Amino acid sequence: MNRKYFISSLVTSAIVFPSLKSRADFPVEEEISKIKIPPYLKPGDTIAITSPAGSISLSGIQPAVQLMESWGYKITIGSTIGKKDFTYGGTDKERLDDLQQQLDNPAIQAIMCARGGYGIVRIIDQLDFTEFIKHPKWLIGFSDVTVLHCHINQNFGIATLHAKMCNSFPDDWTKAEPIQISTILSIRQALAGEDFKYTAPTTQSNRLGKAEGVLVGGNLSIIASNSGTKSDLDTAGKILFLEDTGEYLYNIDRMFWNLKRTGKLAHLAGLIIGGFSAKPDDPGEIFGKTTEEIVMEKVKEYDYPVCFNFPSGHQRANFALKCGTQHLLEVGKEGSILRSL
């Protein structure tokens, strides 16, 4: 197991941090008071599973069902599980109706998206969040689910859970790697309301500092494509988390220019860069910059802390993060720490 990524108190005593970045320009207390945290789960509560993006079979979710039942939760399976409409988990209407039913059902305490892929943007503007606002519940997932995180965090101020989904649970828990076990158990810990502290190794590209703010973000491609929509994030005074996979470096550069040009990088409290696995450049089309260089070029004029190689994203080291809630980020000479507040 790579202990650098485990939820622990590693490197805490050894790190020396600059003073806390001032956030006098942002109404922090007012912002925190508006945060709505869904009730944390207790044994006997119900988690619903739906597939609002890509398709997945009933057998494909069974490892997740069995493990979450062993945690003491009841599991209800949505009508989209097992359905397939080309790449989607059912038609737009089927996926919309399934997710809507789970958002409206007061007997459900959390909704786990079965997998990512593509498709939530096709239904997001047709969803009715009236009952969800009255009775908030945890919405779990990452990748394409970033559409829901951004929309819910921005419009309703309700916390959501950026975390692994059913297709990331190992078929055989007894043979799972320690990092898989740790990251999946972090879902249980987050749903139970336990505080967390995640660590990341130091890198030469990190910019040292300490910042407090509401954590928002997720998949870079989704956040960039949300620009100008009802799901567009206001990042001022917040800690922004970003991750992505399977993109060419030139496209990563283009998306970071989008964030810069739309002002999303200008007034951050801090920036966290999670897993980024870029496609190799095409022959004769060498881009010439690394992901770290792309990022630092866009934020060089700002002074907030920047953390690279954070253990979250499209990778096995993908710990659960509570989007829309207050966090403390500390980027020091020996590594970085993110803790919930």
Rank of each mutant, 00 (worst) to 15 (best):
D144H: 08
K74N: 12
V299W: 03
V299L: 07
A24I: 08
R254S: 11
G335T: 03
R339H: 06
A266M: 02
L233T: 08
I7E: 12
D25S: 12
Y88Q: 11
F196T: 14
L20W: 15
L215V: 07
R3V: 04
Q315Y: 13
K134T: 06
G54C: 03
S57G: 03
L341Y: 05
S55C: 05
H162L: 06
H162W: 07
A110H: 00
Q326Y: 15
T146W: 15
E31A: 11
R122E: 09
V216C: 01
L242G: 03
I77L: 03
A192S: 06
I47S: 02
A278N: 01
P39E: 14
S59Y: 09
E29P: 15
K230D: 12
A176T: 04
I223S: 00
C323I: 15
P178G: 04
K134Y: 13
T160Q: 02
Y248D: 04
L67E: 07
G228F: 11
V331M: 11
S231G: 01
S19D: 07
S221K: 14
I111G: 02
A114Q: 12
T130G: 03
C307S: 06
R254L: 13
Y5K: 03
R207Q: 10
I181N: 02
D234K: 10
K230M: 11
G274R: 00
S22K: 13
Q101P: 14
C113A: 10
G44V: 02
T202I: 15
A163E: 04
I239M: 13
N155Q: 08
S168Y: 08
Q126W: 13
S221N: 12
T291Q: 09
K4H: 10
L10P: 01
V331C: 01
D85W: 08
V147T: 07
K289G: 08
F169G: 03
P38E: 04
I286F: 13
K93S: 13
D97T: 05
I49C: 00
V11C: 05
S227F: 14
I77N: 00
S55L: 02
G141M: 04
Y304K: 00
F169N: 08
G228R: 06
E31G: 09
G275S: 15
L242Q: 05
C323W: 10
V11E: 13
K83G: 08
F241N: 10
K134D: 01
I239F: 07
S231Q: 04
I140F: 06
S33G: 11
A269L: 12
N251W: 14
A24H: 13
L329D: 00
P170M: 04
P201L: 03
D98A: 04
E247R: 01
R115T: 15
F276A: 01
A110F: 00
V306L: 00
I56M: 03
A107I: 15
A163D: 04
P106T: 03
D25N: 08
V331H: 01
L242Y: 06
K83F: 10
R261W: 12
V299N: 01
D244E: 14
V11T: 11
G141W: 11
T146M: 10
A53L: 10
L242F: 03
I75E: 03
I56A: 01
